[in-house]
Write a protein that binds this DNA or RNA. Structure first.
Length: 541
RNA sequence: CGCGGGGUAGAGCAGUUGGCAGCUCGCCAGGCCCAUAACCUGGAGGUCGUGGGUUCAAGUCCCACCCCCGCAACCA
């Protein structure tokens, strides 16, 4: 692994505001970014908007007054407005993106220009007259192979359009073998495995050259082809390059060298072909003529990993506007602390699989996992300490708290180390669901174990006849809570900080000490003040 | 021969490299009283879709079959 973490989400079309699906991708990226930052890894987290699409034009048209012709300025202000909405939504949801790229920005245009010229110099762009069936739904030309009953299988009720025009083509097919070799040599390149298989068979059977431009007269947006103003770059060819332009390709070589290649592209399962097949071949080609895209040995600098996550249904049904079941993440944030929604999204769905979103289930998880198990543990530990130890963390010898009291199942500070190891391992594997599961119900020092430890030792009784032991147990619980807070920080940043504050510590100061210190047993100072606890997750009926 | 997902306790779901079938909710019984009617223990409840096969051992691998869900547009 490299010593930096550059993670991306897809750039989103701005034909609508964010819904729970795009929020999911973005929350996953955010949690991974936070986890890496916490671990001291230099992190770049990129998200943004895809603005050069005909779909956006249509949306802008609809948003405007009926019958009014959309002017260039109208479109631009629509894009600005939507981009603002997306950015604001992410901020309200606590998304810690480091950069937000818009494909209408100058820096992107420059990157695309440089990239196109590089591919062209490599001899992989040619002009050809093209007559083919075009699916407006997919925004792509369909090969005969991909057509069923003279319709696109993805959009069977939409007529395919017969388009005949001069276009530029990208010689992707020239890289087919190199691509297959990449899959073979780097099985981790595409995850989960099922997607790798899907992509591989697509490349083997149906991978052809891509048409990468459209005649400008058909489009009211798009980046002009370098040196040919009559053509506009096809939206996908332009969009993928955002991952380069955001880190300085074409504008800032030094910055680019710092961040590229991307560590991880997070994508939805619907766009894997573009990311897993087209994108690497684009780079392979450009790299031949652009040293900036080459590794030291001259090989192309490809992204390290692409992870395709699944889709949500809402109460078992596909997200659809006609059913009006699209869930607005901002609405959810009104009903629950958004940390709770983040927890739900990341805990509920095995990463990479499809999953279901239901408010009932969210309420259940909120009350049980969060309120009963975590919130209650923090609350009872602090309350008892305050009650029996003068509103302080028991002033006990930390050494004595590293092992459990006899005849209990608590695994001690070693168990806590083991828990950290599992958590780190799962985060590394992008399995946040498993990381959370382990923290909650695992063998070693999970939240459940901690609650059990209370039952086994009964500190509320010990306080009466063995105050020293009571102190040991309570210190153990408080210190465990401190560590739990840091374990869940990437997933629930606000709650984590709140727990730290309730333990009488300053989250910012603690964070500065670095992960190694945070993980070390005994970070909580014996005898320090404990403020009155507040309910972390008020029960919701 | 379209594509994809799935069939595991009443409900919702986990089950990495095959090794005594788990989690949450609900239900029953008990304990506890520090805490958010929260916490802990025990119990009932599963022929892991069906039929074959490989293996000392299969929910997990192989083969066949059955059933369910999504695939106009909006849409990750």
């Amino acid at each position: 692994m490299t010593n930096k973490f550059y993670v991306t989400t897809p750039i989103y079309y701005v034909n609508d505001k964010p819904h729970i699906g795009s929020a999911y991708t973005t929350v996953v990226a955010d949690a991974l970014a936070r986890a890496n930052r916490l671990r001291g890894v230099p992190t770049m987290f990129l998200t943004g908007t895809d603005e050069n699409s005909q779909k956006n034009v249509e949306a802008a048209q609809k948003a405007g007054a009926a019958g009014k012709i959309l002017s260039e300025a109208d479109f631009r202000s629509y894009l600005d407005e939507m981009a603002t909405i997306w950015q604001r939504t992410w901020k309200e949801l606590g998304i810690s993106f480091d950069d937000f790229i818009r494909t209408t920005e100058e820096r992107h245009r420059k990157a695309v220009d440089r990239f196109w010229r590089a591919v062209s110099k490599s001899g992989d762009i040619y002009k050809d007259s093209y007559e083919s069936l075009y699916c407006v739904g997919c925004e792509e030309f369909k090969t005969p192979f991909a057509i069923k009953d003279s319709h696109c299988p993805l959009h069977p009720n939409q007529e395919l359009q017969l388009v005949k025009e001069e276009n530029y083509f990208f010689r992707a097919s020239a890289y087919k073998d190199e691509l297959l070799k990449l899959y073979h040599d780097h099985p981790e390149f595409i995850q989960p495995v099922s997607r790798m298989n899907e992509v591989r068979s697509y490349v083997k059977d149906a991978f052809e050259d891509f048409s990468i431009s459209r005649e400008a007269k058909h489009l009211s947006c798009g980046i002009p082809v370098p040196d040919d103003d009559s053509q506009r770059i096809y939206v996908w060819f332009d969009a993928l390059i955002n991952y380069l332009s955001a880190v300085g390709y074409g504008t800032d070589d030094k910055l680019f060298k710092k961040w590229w290649p991307a560590t991880l592209h997070l994508v939805g399962k619907d766009i894997i072909k573009f990311h897993c097949a087209l994108w690497p071949t684009m780079i392979m080609s450009a790299a031949k003529s652009d040293p900036l895209l080459q590794n030291e040995d001259g090989s192309p600098m490809l992204p390290e990993r692409i992870f395709a996550h699944g889709f949500f249904t809402i109460d078992g049904q596909k997200i659809s506007k006609s059913l009006d079941n699209a869930v607005d993440p901002l609405d959810l944030a009104k009903e629950y602390p958004f940390d709770a929604v983040r927890y739900f999204l990341l805990r509920e769905i095995p990463f990479g699989e499809d999953g279901d979103f239901s408010k009932t289930r969210l309420a259940e998880r909120y009350n049980t996992d969060l309120g009963n198990t975590l919130g209650n543990l923090v609350n009872r530990a602090i309350s008892m300490s305050r009650k029996y130890f003068n509103n302080q963390v028991p002033n006990t010898n930390v050494q004595n708290t590293m092992t459990a009291l006899p005849e209990t199942s608590w695994a001690g500070s070693e168990g806590m180390d083991t828990l950290w190891q599992s958590v780190d391992q799962y985060i590394e594997a992008t399995r946040l669901d498993l990381a959370l599961e382990t923290i909650w119900t695992g063998e070693n020092c999970s939240l459940i174990s901690a609650n059990k430890y209370v039952e086994e030792t009964k500190p509320f009784k010990l306080a009466k006849d063995n105050l020293e032991q009571a102190g040991i147990v309570l210190y153990t619980l408080l210190e465990a809570c401190r560590q739990y807070a840091w374990m869940i920080e990437p997933i629930m940043p606000n709650i984590a900080e709140e727990i730290i504050r309730q333990l009488g510590q300053d989250p910012k100061k603690e964070r500065k000490q670095g992960i190694k210190v945070l993980k070390t047993w005994g970070g909580l100072k014996p005898g320090s003040e404990l403020p009155e606890p507040k309910i972390l997750f008020p029960r919701n009926s």
